[in-house]
């Protein structure tokens, strides 16, 4: 298994092509096209994924998010860093997040 490197200094924010809805303890991401929701495909996040998503506000760096999550969840930093790198790659591949210029 290849361990992915976490790019700690990068800052991400939701792309302009997705809106977030919190419904009944679920975090749902809805792709939009123009001004309309694309209802053919939605995305849901689990608890830790939703926490990362909430912290991706275009202000916090990946490193800052990592530190916040270590305070929130019972997890070792190394494991969280690897999981976060993979999760961020998934979000980027799905065009759900964009890198925020520093």
């Amino acid at each position: 298994m290849v361990s992915q490197a976490l790019e700690c200094d990068k800052i991400y924010c939701p792309s302009g092509q997705v809106v977030t809805r919190h419904i009944a303890d679920e975090t749902i991401l809805i792709p939009i096209s123009g001004n309309l929701a694309n209802m053919e495909r939605l995305f849901t996040l689990n608890d830790s994924g939703a926490s990362i998503w909430r912290l991706m506000d275009g202000k916090r760096s990946v490193q800052e998010i990592l530190q916040d999550l270590i305070q929130e969840f019972d997890v070792a930093e190394d494991r969280l860093a690897g999981d976060m790198a993979e999760f961020i790659d998934q979000l980027r591949d799905l065009d759900l997040i964009a890198e925020h210029p520093v």
């Binding site: 809106v19 809805r21 419904i23 303890d25 679920e26 749902i28 991401l29 809805i30 929701a37 209802m39 495909r41 939605l42 995305f43 849901t44 996040l45 689990n46 608890d47 830790s48 994924g49 926490s51 990362i52 305070q71 929130e72 969840f73 019972d74 997890v75 969280l80 999981d83 976060m84 999760f87 998934q90 979000l91 799905l94 759900l96």
Partner: peptide
Amino acid sequence: SNTNKKGKKSYQKPEVKAIVV
């Protein structure tokens, strides 16, 4: 859907699952 003795939530690997201005 959430703590251990340290007051932290139990951890699960973050996941995005593809399947509502």
